[in-house]
Simulated assay, not measured.
Amino acid sequence: MTRIALWMLVGCLTAAVYASEQIPEGRDLSADQIVEKNIAARGGLDAWRKIQTMVWVGHVDSANTPSDELPFALALKRPNKTRFEMTVLNQRAVRVFNGKQGWKVSPSATGGGEARPYTMDELKSAHDEQVIDGLLIDHQAKGVDVTLDGIDKVDGHDAYRLAVKLPSGVTRHVWVDAQSFLDVKYDRAARGPRGPVTVEVKYSDYKDVEGLQIPFTIESGAAAAGKRDKLTIDKVSLNPPLDDTMFAKPASQGWHNSVSVNAEPSPPMPPALSRTSP
């Protein structure tokens, strides 16, 4: 769920370094027990299994963009379809993945570019994502192996560090708060301008959305970086109707089949979504 939006912005991020500790005495939970508590804290397995589509609307703040509070809309559909739209200087940047192939449209000086296919690295990352519910829920059915790797301090609180091995062979890490059992941090490898880097993503401001706990603030960047990229969610809609054409190759400028055109959630999306329209 929360990993997709930040992956869309990963090109502007740099390496993160983590300090780790041994698991404190008395914290003898197994990886399976931590995952079980995490799922319960997030709203429960049955509740998440009922979610087939999800739409986020909000804004992005980044030192790497020309203005603050750029509006975005993110549409997710099982099993692994995503569409991310962000308005930049009255033009829309679009990234779409239909579960097998991906395309991107970037704003240009002439008003809009043609849809370009994902690179091989982008395709690998998109295939590795688990949209809607993330890596831990139903991880065995997804072929994801989870082991307890230790415990770290995350913003002053103990958090279990789980090593998560994906079917592709890639290993990532998820940090679960030792008190709330909600996800508080996540890392992934990315290709930077000078080679591979590790991206750190933090989750906070959890809110109840129809019984599910969803983070409404997501920050990413290097651990020692001054300013982080920040994604703020203003509205989450669960199970809105999303036609598969929304995840097809976008037309020139990315205006057609947009979230604002085709997604009609109930209740309707707030005015923030209309700002993504031409």
Rank of each mutant, 00 (worst) to 15 (best):
Q140H: 12
R275L: 08
Q22F: 03
D208E: 08
L74G: 00
D68I: 07
S125L: 05
H127W: 12
L242N: 07
G113F: 08
I34S: 11
A93E: 07
S125E: 15
R83P: 00
R3I: 03
E21V: 06
P267N: 04
V146T: 10
L166S: 01
E114P: 05
P270N: 00
F247M: 06
K37Q: 03
D229L: 14
Y203P: 03
A63S: 14
L70W: 13
V154N: 09
F181M: 08
F181C: 13
T198Q: 04
E21I: 01
V131N: 15
P267F: 05
L13N: 13
G44M: 00
R228L: 13
R188P: 01
K230N: 06
A178Y: 12
V259E: 10
Y18I: 15
Q130S: 03
K77C: 13
N38L: 07
W56Y: 15
K104V: 15
G111L: 06
P270W: 06
R78K: 15
S252C: 04
F97I: 07
A16K: 08
Q140V: 05
G134P: 11
W48F: 07
Q253F: 10
S20P: 04
W56R: 11
G150Q: 13
P278K: 01
G221K: 10
K165Q: 08
P240A: 05
H157S: 15
Q33C: 15
S168N: 04
D155K: 12
M8T: 15
T232I: 08
S106R: 14
D234N: 01
V174W: 00
W103F: 10
V131T: 14
L74T: 01
S204H: 05
P267T: 05
P196F: 15
L70E: 14
P250A: 11
L9Y: 06
V201E: 15
A63V: 11
Q213D: 09
K104N: 15
H157Y: 10
Y18N: 09
A93I: 09
D155F: 02
L76T: 10
A222H: 14
L70N: 13
Y160Q: 06
K142H: 12
Q101H: 12
W255E: 09
G143Q: 04
G226V: 05
R95D: 13
A272Q: 04
L9G: 00
Q33F: 02
L212I: 10
M120H: 07
R92Y: 00
A222C: 05
V174I: 11
L238P: 02
S260F: 13
T65D: 11
